[in-house]
C-alpha cells in the first residue's frame, strides 16, 4: 500500500515547507495550496486522504474552503484538520461545526499534530506518542 496523501493548505511558504519535511519523514506524501481557490482545485486533482487547513487565506478563508469541499461529493468526506494562528476560543467551535475534525493552535506541537493526523486517518497510535489531553483552549 502506498503512502497516504495529505494536502497542506497554508499561505505561508515556510510553514508549508516545514510541514512537508515533518510529514515526509513520517511517510506521508504531501501536496500544497496557498489560497482558497487553488486548495479546492488541488483537492479535486489529488483526492487526498486528509487536508491540513489554515484559516487565514487569500481569496476566501478556511471556512469558505470547507464549505466548497462539502459541496463536492468526492471531496465531502475527506477529513480536515484546521491548523491556525487565529484564536482557538473564537474559532474552534466554528471550525468543528463547519466540518473540521480538530482545531489545532499554531504553533502545533509535532507529536500532537502527528497523533491527530493518525487518528483522523484511522491509523494506530504510536507507542511513544503522548496522549493528547487538550480539552479546549487555554
Amino acid at each position: 500500500m502506498g503512502n497516504k496523501k495529505i494536502l497542506i493548505v497554508d499561505d505561508d511558504p515556510d510553514v508549508r515547507h516545514g510541514m512537508h519535511i515533518r510529514l515526509k519523514a513520517n511517510h506521508y506524501d504531501t501536496f500544497f495550496a496557498a489560497d482558497a481557490v487553488s486548495s479546492v482545485t488541488e483537492a479535486r486533482k489529488q483526492e487526498p486522504d486528509l487536508i491540513i487547513l489554515d484559516l487565514g487565506l487569500p481569496a476566501g478563508d478556511g471556512f469558505v474552503v470547507m464549505e466548497r469541499l462539502k459541496k463536492v461529493p468526492s471531496l465531502a468526506l475527506i477529513p480536515i484538520i484546521v491548523v491556525s494562528a487565529r484564536d482557538a476560543r473564537a474559532n474552534r467551535a466554528r471550525a468543528i461545526k463547519a466540518g473540521a475534525m480538530a482545531f489545532l493552535q499554531k504553533p502545533v506541537d509535532n507529536a500532537e499534530l502527528l497523533a491527530v493526523i493518525r487518528r483522523a486517518l484511522g491509523e494506530p497510535a504510536q507507542p511513544t506518542e503522548p496522549v493528547v489531553h487538550d480539552l479546549g483552549p487555554i
Binding site: 505561508d12 515556510d14 510553514v15 516545514g18 510541514m19 519535511i21 515533518r22 494562528a85 499554531k106 504553533p107
Partner: peptide, 9 residues
C-alpha cells in the same frame, strides 16, 4: 504566531 510556527518547525 505564524513566524513562530516556522521557527519551531
Amino acid at each position: 504566531r505564524s513566524p513562530l510556527t516556522a521557527i519551531y518547525q
